[in-house]
């Protein structure tokens, strides 16, 4: 297998074609991408069986760089495209990468319904708390009071808790980590892919250029240190909780659908038999 001959990063990336990336210096998305690749490598998945689907935004550009079946869709709709593909190709591992705006603002409805439906998809949300590609507007996860290009006096919109939303909406697996904790990204992505059902992995990730600079936070290194110092694998007062927050067994949508097919076909066969007897 060619995988043995070259480093996994090189094997799974479109390394000869599509680099350098569009991402700014100091951006955390590359770290997340690395974690996803290592998670896939852990599971020894073939490139042909993996699909990566994204919406719009900085994270939406990730599928260009990975050598899978890749699809860059419309803003917020990646999960809906992925739903169709997964039902058409149940054997594929379908990963959906989204930013915070893509996943829970414009795509919020698709997000909660994907969780409710519990189809076997792996959603990885790179939460940089801003709209980076459009210059730094406040997003649904920007903290209260932060400055943004269209919040020059401070953000008054209450932020979403993405993991809480996923849990309440019915996701089978929910985990949170940060770009500082690269090994956790790898582990959680691998577990999310293995989990039968809808898996959500939220990765807090620094955007030093359009969030850090405008919100007068720190540079990339300081932001990473903030993740190190202000998050915790245990539930601690004043710290953002990391780790696997939800891991529960709920019947998966594809399995449920295949039961419907069996029932419909059984009924059809019974009817045909009844018809012959008459």
């Amino acid at each position: 297998m060619a995988m043995e001959k070259m480093p996994p990063m090189q094997y799974y990336l479109r390394s000869k074609k599509k680099f350098p990336t569009v991402w700014c210096p100091g951006c955390g998305i590359g770290i997340v991408q690395g974690g996803i690749i290592r998670g896939i490598e852990r599971l020894r998945l073939s490139k042909d069986e993996v699909a990566m689907i994204s919406g719009i935004g900085c994270t939406g550009r990730m599928p260009v760089y990975v050598d899978f079946n890749t699809m860059h869709t419309t803003h917020g709709r990646a999960l809906a495209f992925a739903t169709g593909l997964k039902l058409a190709k149940p054997g594929m591992k379908v990963l959906v990468v989204m930013g915070d705006g893509d996943a829970v603002a414009i795509g919020g409805n698709h997000f909660i319904h994907a969780a409710r439906r519990n189809l076997d998809l792996t959603a990885i949300i790179v939460n940089n708390q801003t709209y980076g590609m459009t210059g730094g507007q406040q997003s649904p996860t920007t903290p209260l009071g932060d400055l943004a290009t269209v919040a020059p006096y401070g953000n008054i919109d209450q932020p979403f808790d993405i993991c809480g939303l996923a849990e309440a909406a019915g996701a089978a697996f929910v985990a949170r980590t940060t770009a500082y904790h690269a090994v956790e990204i790898e582990r959680f992505v691998a577990r999310g892919i293995e989990k039968k059902g809808f898996a959500v992995i939220e990765v807090l990730s620094q955007c030093p250029v359009f969030y850090g600079r405008i919100a007068r936070r720190q540079n990339a290194v300081e932001m990473l240190h903030w993740y190190r110092d202000n998050t915790s694998a245990e539930a601690l007062e004043g710290k953002v909780r990391r780790g696997v927050l939800v891991d529960r067994d709920i019947p998966e949508y594809g399995d449920r659908y295949r039961e419907i097919v069996a029932r419909a076909r059984g009924e059809k066969a019974r009817r045909a038999e009844g018809g012959r007897r008459r």
Partner: peptide
Amino acid sequence: VFIQMEDEIASLAAVVGASLGGL
């Protein structure tokens, strides 16, 4: 496959995704 989606935006998105899967 029949699926009722959460809205019409998602309906056509799922249709396009399924078509790319060959259906």
